[in-house]
Amino acid sequence: MTATATAPGSVPVVRSTRRPWTALPAALRSAVEARLGSPVAAARSQSGGFSRGAASRLRCADGGRAFVKAVSLDGDPVSARLYEQEAAVAAALPGGLPVPAFRGLITEGGWTALLFDDVPGRTPSVPWRAADLDAVLPALTRLTAVAADRPAPGLSRWGGALADWVGWNHLLARGDALADVPSWARPHAERLAALEAGFPEAAYGDAVLHSDLRSDNILVRRGSVTFVDWAWAARGQDWIDPMIFALCAAVQGVADPDALFLRHPAARRADPEAVDALLAALAGRFTTAARQPTDWGTAPIRAFQRAEAATALHWLGRRRTWYPGAR
């Protein structure tokens, strides 16, 4: 199976070629059906996301529905660990969030599967359309408001290890030529390093964050919006999810991420210096991450990371008036 990220124009579309339900090991399918309490009568594969495992909407013989995603421990150990992480996160998420109900983690025959309620809906169109943005933004505003009031002590602080967020400082320390950085941004490398140093204080907060709000992690149906794939959930400033959403939306066709970001009330309350610190840290992290070795499975991830680095730099450059023509 091959994960692909096609690009109509310059807009990456996150899609994967996935194993169908019927191609999963019989023992795993039986374990899933036992958990569901009914045989699976029909299954429809889903293509969103970077994982190479199975992702199917299931309809059971008794009329019940569920969503399953499964991955082989041997074929994709990184995704398998993420599934285990997502299962732990599901147990730590507070109630009241617009998320699919979690039905459990199943390990069988070297495979790991996660079961959720099947939520009707589609992923937003890419490039993003105004109608989908108009549906998702109010839902994200509601999510932020609910998440700010729900304690979640089981979730880690947003950002993980500090070493992952000092990319510019590491590049400068070794005299890197920054050949993959836009020419206009290279003279500002020391400023970027100084900004990213403020990352820990800028990100610190207690709001529950999804942390990975790409289009393929959002389902829209008749104005109803559900946020899925919470493996990277954490606690931090309430404006971080709107920032991640605006960044990913800009990678996938939205012209002005700052304008999109500022449509969210949490963004309008945010400290501008803290916002710039996180943009600098994100740009540094994605710049260094995109340089990691690429194979048939990681090539789409590296391509998306390169696009995220360029977009974050462009956004920050306009905010700081570093970018040519910025006002």
Score class of each variant (00 low, 15 high):
A152T: 04
A266R: 05
A90E: 06
G109D: 07
V14R: 05
G109Q: 04
G253T: 02
V181C: 13
P265N: 05
M243A: 15
F102C: 00
A250C: 02
I301C: 10
T2M: 15
P12R: 06
A274D: 07
G175F: 04
T112W: 00
L313E: 00
L247Q: 11
L143S: 00
D206P: 08
R318G: 14
S79T: 15
D212Q: 05
R157C: 06
G284A: 03
G53E: 10
L172P: 02
R81I: 03
H170P: 09
V32H: 00
G95T: 10
A88Y: 03
S183H: 12
L262G: 13
P25A: 09
A54K: 00
P153E: 08
V99S: 13
R81M: 13
L279W: 07
I244C: 12
L137S: 12
S72K: 00
Q237P: 03
P153M: 07
D74K: 15
A43D: 04
D276G: 11
Y83C: 04
Q46T: 05
L155F: 01
E196R: 08
D117S: 06
G167W: 09
S45I: 11
R150E: 08
V14L: 13
L82N: 08
L262I: 02
P77Y: 08
H314Y: 13
A202Q: 01
T226R: 10
A309V: 09
S211K: 12
L143D: 03
P20S: 06
H170V: 15
P300M: 09
H170T: 11
